[in-house]
Structure formats: structure tokens, C-alpha cells
Design a protein around this nucleic acid. Structure first.
Length: 928
DNA sequence: GTACTCACG
DNA sequence: GACGTACGTGAGTACG
């Protein structure tokens, strides 16, 4: 039967439901995967309550939930600022929007939306159609914009206040009847939707005027008759704007609909469909309510064994930790993991070098406060032998059995493995043949939210977010020479420590993971932190071949040269002293020899840095010799000697470790050894790179971004001159010099170019006259002159600096183009610290965006080169180093370049091209 | 453990 | 008007 007399249509404003649900509820997440579902849950509750309350004689015959779709409507064409000041949708709400549509359908309620139309217009059209057909309409919403529709059988219902609004109710709110509501709205405007209206006229005055003159057109025609001069003038001056406002607030009753009223007939929900949806959402309470109502047995929603309380309600209790000593006990834990879908894990090892250590034990946690430790290779306590026995302690699980049992769990794609600094555990487990995935990492979850605020180690996070000091490891291992490895710690002492680490990790995950959405860094974490773990793990495990002979020959040569220099220096000084002691050197230079320019630092010692010695070197031989000696000393101790100690005896290669959460800007940091600071600037040091070699039949291939930070600056600050120079492939420093000093490119001198280069770099660092002057060794006033001229020629730079520091002051952080946040807590400090913080804030978005770009490239790289005989070995901030089979260099270069140059896309479309230079050779020196 | 120096981007 | 300043890192050495 077609919709008509006696029928009753309910129209529910879906968006209003969603926002109410979102703001009314605390941020709930789905237990199994952390998906935010608070708004969906509230939405379902509201829908359920609506259905429960609308039974009986007055029940609707037809009903629909109407949603907005698309952000651009005809109103934006009329007025581009319409709804222009509306804040962005919260990041944790966005993924819930499609789920509310699903929920509506699951309840078997018609769910309608149309691209490019606001829900209000669809509601208006349906209300008109229903009224014309002779039926009744109830609009479930409290949105005042819909009040113009009331009357003639149309009412509104504020579901929250359970308040029916008829024509009288509208008059109470607007001071006029429903037919004049749009006139009043046109005059009063609306700050929420950014409808301008008449300045200075609010709801009260608008109603007064409309009541006096009858309607808006009459009022505007007779505006000259208004007594109050200011009001009169406003109406005359803003007549066009008021008419525009009226068109904006008038709902469109003629939206072309793709469905009819008859499609909206009320249907009973299908218990199976509805309960399936609710179960999937893991809404226990609603599921129960619905099953009771429908007289169906409630389906089993995976019930977490842990009570649904927050982490800090559960005390830390070592008694609740279990030692797993056999397969039977472990299988109980595995069942728990499979049931729950996640596990926090931690590995205990004999040391800190994940490429060399032995696995001693594994701890697991599935519920807050409960954890276990599985000892595998603890050594027996020893009775006779002072040096300890090599026999294994009693009561441990057979390592092979344990690994065999855990492997399917740790590799199960449906089970989430949670760790603190998972790269370490993943590497240790990889050496046991386990490829851990998928993972979450509490260190990285913290880093994505709080870079720049504090460290992200377990102790820091536990103190900060759990208010708990973890059991320290020092008392177990001892210190100094008498320190023991973890396998020598008795199991009874090791277990509480180890199990607690897994427990803490799980608690941290509970506390921190849901906040990713709130901090709007979910995408940062998901696309630039978490996926980097397996990539870096593979690079670190690959390592790079370092030729020991080359290094030791260089060490010997350096030692010989240093001995010669040392003798010369002592001769010049007239006495023997420790050249490596800045304190002794300072006393020799400034006290004994009486040289000028001795400046004492805060500790009262003379400064003897390279800059000081360079100044002195123009007049004296001794400081010049010391500079030479220092360079050799540095190269020998830090590189040619130390690097040899890092060659892994098993692989013959050097395996650095990358800290993902070390640098606040998003850069990686390389440690043990640091392979990001291998010399290149000096000829002497550069030769150290000859020791980094490719395997037989392979070559090293280096690709680096050209001027990436300057390009990003040109994009962010919108410097057209720089952008053009980059697009034309010009020498950017020469182009800058030309622009600044008016020197044509063909007459450019190296010195002018050098100065421009220094300024370009200075700008990236938050330039100061003092810093530039020192760098260029020119008077400070001259340096300041350069900077002034630079700002004059590229005014966008100054704006960028001012905007960035203002943003940092307001928000306490700055952001990269990809959304990475870098906190700047010192930005409002006073004194010199404020200067530091300001320059760091200026630099961070640039350095951080560049770091994001190469991270994105690295994450895509394994898939991109999977079919090529190439391995990614190292990252040095703007460079990637590969080991490639000789014949494949060109193919790999082409593929890698494509990935690197396109790494910003599709998230960010830079207005400056990124270009990559490539080189290859038998060693790292040749590859450059 | 801290300060200084110096290697890199 | 004085003060102190380039941004981001890690490692080795001296010294208290």
C-alpha cells in the first residue's frame, strides 16, 4: 500500500545521533584491535532506545535514518565560506562513520544518504512528500535548522529531552511561526554554519522586525522606515548578504531522491544480522539487551578474562606471575593467547647486542596483572666451581619445544604481538627462526604521540603512565667486572623481573594505544613507525661487509703519524704533556706560551675547540699540529680501531642498530656502531669508506636525495623563486646568490656561491646573525645584512619562521607535512633557552618532513625490489646504501630512484620535485 | 657521570 | 642594553 493518509513517517537525523553519541561517551575502543567504537556504541544504544520507545498505537509505519554525505553542497556554490569554520572531524570519529551506516542497516532501519546533499534537505523533501500524501511526520532531531519544516502534520522530537516540538514550540524558540523561521535565521545568521546574516542583529531583534513587517522581503523593502538609525543602516547596507543568508538557511524540499517513501516502511530487525553486527563490534551489553528483547539466546561475545577496569586499578603483584616449566603449562598460555587475540611479550638474553646474544627466556602477558616467564637457558647454580657451571638449571622448558610451540602463535596473522622496542625481540626471535608479525610497539606508540616531551624507554613510560617503578635489573646482574649475564641469574629471581616487563608492556599498550587517535597521530604510527620495524630489522641483520685488513693497516699508519706529531708538539711546547687532554693543552697554549684569545668556559677550563685552534694556527705551529693530531686520533679511535671490534665473528659483517624513537624530529639514529657519521668531508677520513665493501660479485650502490631539506623549505614556505630554480634543475646555491646579490649566473664566483650556501643552510637551522657570522668568518653586521637581504628577496621565509614559532607557542608542538608531531616544551622558556627552542621549532618541520619522506621510501623498498638481486643495508638521513649483484645496478638504480623520488606521494604532493643522485662501486667511497 | 671534542646529515 | 645562539645526532677521551 502506498504511503498516504493514516501513515506516520519518522525521520532521524543521523549526524546528530552520531555527534551526540561521540561527545556523550568516553573514548571506547574495540578490545581485540583497538578500533575506536565509542560513537558507534552510543549510536546503537540510541537507536535501540528509539525502537523500544516507539511501539504501540502511535508507532511509525515508515522510518529512516538520514545522513550527510560529501562536504560540498549547493550552499558552498552560493557562499564559499558556508560551514567554513567547522572544525575537522576528530580523528577517532572518522573511522566510525561508515560503521554507523552498517549499524542502521543491521537494525533493519532504512538508511539513506545522497552524495552532495545535506541530510536536512533530504529530510525536508521527504517531509513535504509525506505531508502532501496526507501522512504525519516526526523529525527526530533537535537541530533548529529543521524547525522551518514544522506544521501541517510535521512535528519534531528531541529524543534526548523527549520533547515534542510543534508550531507553538517553534514560536517559543524563534518568536515567529515555522513559516517565518527562515526569515529570522536569515537576519540573525548562524555562527555554527557560518551564515553571515545581518551584523549586530540576533534572534530577538530579528523576530521583532519580522513580526512588525510581516516577512523578510517587506522588511528589506521598507528598511528606510526603521526608527533606530544603526539598525536601519545595517539592513540597507547588508540587504544582499541577508538575502544570501536566507537562501543558505532555506531547506531544499525538491531534492531529487533515488528512493520513495514506500521504501521506508518499518521492518522488524533480523535477529541474526543484528546480533552478528553487535558481536563483531564486541558490544556485550547491547548484544545482551537485544537478545533478551528478541527472545534469542545471546551469542558468545569473546569475553575477556580480565575485568574491564583500567590498568591502574590492578596492582602490580609478583605473586600473580607464573613460571612456565613445561609444554603443558605453556599450552594453557597459548590457549589464552588464541582466545584473546593478542599477547605482550619480552625476551631475556645474555646481553644487549641482538645479533650475538643467546635467548635465555621469554615472558608473556595476556591480561593486565598476570604474566608468565618461560626460562629456557638459565645456568645451574654452582657448588664447587667459582667460575660457574655450564650445566643448565633444573625446571626449564626445552628451548626447541618452546620455540616450536610459540612459532605458530608469533607468526599467526590474527594474533597481535605487543612489545616494548619490538625490533630487538623480533631480531632475537628471527635468529630462532620465528618471523614475528603482526606487531604493536609501545615505544613507538609513545614516540608518535610524545616526541620531544620525554624519552620512550620502558622505565620512563612506566613511571609516567603507570606510576610504577619497574624492578631494576642492576641488582640481578651486578655492575662492573663482577657483572653476570642474565642466564646466570637464578630463575626465582629472574622470573618476577622478566614477567613484570611483559605485564608493564601490556599495561602501557592499554594506556597509550587508544590515545593515538586522540593525538591524531594514528596515521603517523601506522604508516611511518610500525612498518619500519621489519624493514630495519632486515637491514640490521644484513649488515655491511667491512674489511678488517684495510682498517688495521690504516690504524697502524695513523699511529705512526700521530707519534711523529706528538714528538713535534712536545718539542714546540718545551715539555711533555697529554695532547689528548684539552685541559693540559689549554694551559700550555694560554698560560705557558701566553697566546692571545684564551677563553674559559663554564667549568673554568680554556676552550680548545677546532675553531679556537684554527685561529691560533695562523700564527703558531703548535695548534696546527694539534689539529692534525686530533683528526688522526679521532679517525683511529672512533673508526679504524673501534669499527674492527664491531665486526660480527659469525657473519664477518658490521651490524649497526637503528634507534627509531631516538631523535625528536623523526630521524633515525645509528648506534653500535654509528654508521651515520663515517667520515667523508676530509680526504684523509674519506678513505675509511674504502673499508666498507661489497661481497665478491656485488657492488655497493648509494642513492641520496639532492638538497631535500631546502626543497621542503621551498615547498612549505612557498618560495616561488626557489621552487622554480629547483624545477629548472639549477644549482640552487648559485641561484640563491644570483637572486640575493644580483650577480648573473654566468658571472658567479665560488666565493659568492659559498656565502649563499651558508645562508641557505642557516635558514634551515633558524638563522641568526651571530651564527652566520661565525660560520662565514665575517663581521656580524655584515652577516646580519645578508640575512636582511635574504628575507627581503624571499619574504615567505620570514613568514614561515614567524608562523612556525607562533604555532609552537600556541600548541606546544610543530608538525611535519605528514602529520608527525614534534613537541617544543621549551618554546615559552625565558633566556637563551627560548632561542634554542625557537630555532629547533623552525628546523623540526623541515628536518622531520625529510625524515618522513625517506622513511616512506624505506618502507616501500622491500616490495619494490623483491624481484631484484639487491639488499638495502644502510640509511644515512638522506641516503640509502644497497648491496647489488654487479649486472643489476642499472635496474636497481632505476627502481630505487622511482620509489625515493615518489616517496611523498600520495599523502603529500610536493610543489617541488625530489631528485636522487646515484653512484656505485666496489666500496662505499667509490659509490659516492 | 659530565664536559669536551668531533665525525656525519 | 646585555647575553648568548646556528638544527639533529653518537662515540671516545679525560677527569673528578
Amino acid at each position: 500500500m502506498a504511503f498516504g493518509k493514516g501513515h506516520h513517517l519518522h525521520l532521524i537525523d543521523g549526524s546528530a545521533f552520531i555527534f551526540r553519541a561521540y561527545h556523550a561517551l568516553p573514548p571506547l575502543t574495540r578490545k581485540s584491535d583497538g578500533l575506536p567504537v565509542g560513537a558507534v556504541s552510543g549510536f546503537c544504544n540510541m537507536l535501540l532506545r528509539y525502537i523500544e520507545e516507539n511501539t504501540g498505537p502511535d508507532a511509525p509505519t515508515h522510518a529512516a535514518v538520514i545522513f550527510d554525505k560529501g562536504s560540498h553542497t549547493f550552499r558552498n556554490d552560493l557562499y564559499d565560506k558556508y560551514k567554513g569554520n567547522r572544525p575537522e572531524m576528530p580523528e577517532d570519529l572518522r573511522p566510525q562513520i561508515p560503521l554507523t551506516r552498517e549499524a542502521t542497516r543491521a537494525f533493519n532501519v532504512a538508511c539513506e544518504e545522497m552524495e552532495g546533499f545535506e541530510a536536512d534537505d533530504i529530510i525536508a523533501t521527504l517531509a513535504r512528500q509525506a505531508r502532501e500524501a496526507g501522512g504525519r511526520v516526526t523529525i527526530i532531531s533537535s537541530d533548529k535548522d529543521l524547525m522551518q519544516l514544522v506544521g501541517g502534520g510535521v512535528e519534531m522530537l528531541d529524543a534526548m529531552k523527549n520533547l515534542r516540538i510543534d508550531a507553538e514550540g517553534v514560536e517559543a524558540k524563534f518568536g515567529v511561526g515555522p513559516d517565518r523561521v527562515i526569515d529570522v535565521q536569515a537576519l540573525a545568521g548562524d555562527s555554527v554554519d557560518n551564515v553571515p546574516g545581518a551584523p549586530g542583529i540576533g534572534l530577538k531583534t530579528a523576530a521583532l522586525l519580522i513580526n512588525e513587517y510581516g516577512d523578510l522581503e517587506t522588511l528589506l523593502e521598507r528598511a528606510g522606515e526603521i526608527k533606530q538609525p544603526k539598525r536601519r543602516q545595517t539592513l540597507i547596507d547588508n540587504a544582499d548578504q541577508i538575502r544570501l543568508s536566507k537562501r543558505l538557511v532555506t531547506l531544499d524540499c525538491d531534492t531529487p531522491l533515488t528512493f520513495t517513501l514506500d521504501d521506508l516502511e518499518v521492518r522488524d530487525p533480523d535477529p541474526e544480522t543484528l546480533l552478528k553486527f553487535l558481536t563483531e563490534m564486541e558490544f556485550r551489553t547491547i548484544t545482551k539487551r537485544v537478545s533478551e528483547r528478541m527472545g534469542v539466546a545471546p551469542p558468545a561475545v569473546p569475553e575477556p578474562a580480565a575485568p574491564e577496569t583500567v590498568a591502574d586499578d590492578i596492582p602490580f603483584d609478583p605473586e600473580a606471575y607464573e613460571v612456565v616449566r613445561d609444554a603443558e603449562a605453556l599450552s594453557v598460555w597459548i590457549d589464552r593467547i588464541m582466545e584473546r587475540g593478542w599477547v605482550a611479550l619480552d625476551t631475556e638474553t645474555t646481553g644487549l647486542d641482538d645479533m650475538r646474544v643467546d635467548l635465555v627466556g621469554i615472558s608473556l602477558a595476556v591480561e593486565l596483572g598476570r604474566a608468565c616467564y618461560i626460562p629456557l637457558r638459565h645456568k645451574a647454580a654452582d657448588r664447587d666451581d667459582l667460575f660457574g657451571s655450564d650445566a643448565l638449571a633444573e625446571g626449564q622448558m626445552d628451548p626447541d619445544t618452546c620455540i616450536a610451540m610459540l612459532k605458530p602463535v608469533f607468526e599467526d596473522p590474527s594474533i597481535l604481538k605487543i612489545g616494548q622496542n619490538m625490533k630487538y625481540d623480533a631480531k632475537v626471535l628471527a635468529r630462532q627462526g620465528i618471523d614475528v608479525a603482526p606487531i604493536d610497539d609501545t615505544m613507538l606508540i609513545s614516540y608518535a604521540q610524545h616526541a620531544g616531551l620525554h624519552g620512550h624507554g620502558m622505565d620512563t613510560l612506566s613511571e609516567r603512565y603507570l606510576d610504577h617503578t619497574p624492578i631494576p635489573i642492576k641488582p640481578l646482574l651486578g655492575t662492573g667486572k663482577s657483572a653476570i649475564t642474565f642466564d646466570r641469574v637464578p630463575i626465582e629471581k629472574a622470573a618476577p623481573y622478566a614477567a613484570e616487563d611483559a605485564d608493564i608492556t601490556l599495561r602501557l599498550w592499554h594506556s597509550l594505544k587508544p590515545n593515538l587517535h586522540r593525538a591524531k597521530v594514528t596515521t603517523v604510527y601506522e604508516t611511518m613507525e610500525r612498518p619500519l620495524v621489519p624493514v630495519l630489522s632486515a637491514m640490521e641483520r644484513a649488515g655491511i661487509k667491512v674489511d678488517r685488513d684495510t682498517l688495521s693497516r690504516m690504524s697502524a699508519a695513523f699511529a705512526q703519524k700521530m707519534a711523529g706529531l706528538e714528538a713535534e708538539i712536545h718539542e714546540l711546547a718545551g715539555e711533555s704533556f697529554n695532547v689528548g687532554s684539552p685541559k693540559q693543552l689549554g694551559e700550555i697554549l694560554f698560560d705557558k706560551m701566553g697566546l692571545e684569545g684564551g677563553k674559559k668556559g663554564k667549568t673554568g677550563a680554556y676552550a680548545t675547540g677546532a675553531d679556537v685552534l684554527e685561529d691560533l694556527a695562523t700564527e703558531h705551529d703548535l695548534p696546527a699540529r694539534v689539529l692534525d693530531w686530533r683528526q688522526l686520533s679521532k679517525l683511529k679511535s672512533t673508526y679504524t680501531d673501534a669499527l674492527q671490534d664491531h665486526i660480527n665473528p659469525d657473519t664477518g659483517r658490521v651490524h649497526t642498530s637503528y634507534m627509531i624513537a631516538g631523535a625528536a624530529t623523526g630521524r633515525l639514529a645509528s648506534t653500535d656502531p654509528n654508521l651515520q657519521n663515517i667520515p667523508i668531508r676530509s680526504e684523509e677520513g674519506r678513505r675509511i669508506r674504502q673499508a666498507f665493501v661489497a661481497e665478491e660479485g656485488k657492488v655497493l650502490l648509494a642513492l641520496d636525495y639532492s638538497q631535500i631539506e631546502l626543497r621542503i623549505l621551498a615547498h612549505i614556505a612557498g618560495i616561488d623563486a626557489l621552487k622554480e630554480a629547483f624545477r629548472d634543475g639549477q644549482d640552487i646555491h648559485a641561484a640563491t646568490a644570483s637572486e640575493m646579490f644580483g650577480v648573473p649566473l654566468d658571472q658567479m664566483t665560488p666565493d659568492v656561491r659559498r656565502q649563499a650556501k651558508a645562508i641557505n643552510f642557516g635558514v634551515i637551522y633558524g638563522i641568526s646573525g651571530f651564527g652566520l657570522a661565525r660560520n662565514l668568518r665575517i663581521p656580524r653586521a655584515e652577516a646580519q645584512g645578508f640575512i636582511d637581504r635574504y628575507f627581503e628577496r624571499f619574504p615567505g621565509i620570514k613568514d614561515y619562521m614567524a608562523d612556525t614559532t607562533a604555532f609552537a607557542k600556541e600548541h606546544g608542538f610543530v608538525q611535519t607535512l605528514f602529520g608527525r608531531k614534534i613537541h617544543t616544551p621549551e618554546i615559552s622558556a625565558s633566556g637563551p633557552r627560548a632561542g634554542f627552542a625557537k630555532r629547533a621549532a623552525i628546523n623540526a618541520p623541515i628536518q622531520g618532513t625529510a625524515a618522513d619522506v625517506i622513511r616512506r621510501a624505506m618502507i616501500r623498498m622491500p616490495d619494490a625490489i623483491a624481484d631484484l638481486p639487491a639488499t638495502m643495508l644502510l640509511q644515512v638521513h638522506d641516503e640509502l646504501l644497497f648491496e647489488v649483484e654487479e649486472g643489476a645496478v642499472d635496474a636497481v638504480t632505476e627502481r630505487v630512484r622511482e620509489i625515493m623520488e615518489g616517496a611523498a606521494m600520495p599523502a603529500v604532493d610536493l610543489t617541488v620535485p625530489l631528485t636522487v643522485d646515484a653512484g656505485s662501486g666496489a666500496n662505499w667511497s667509490e659509490a659516492h
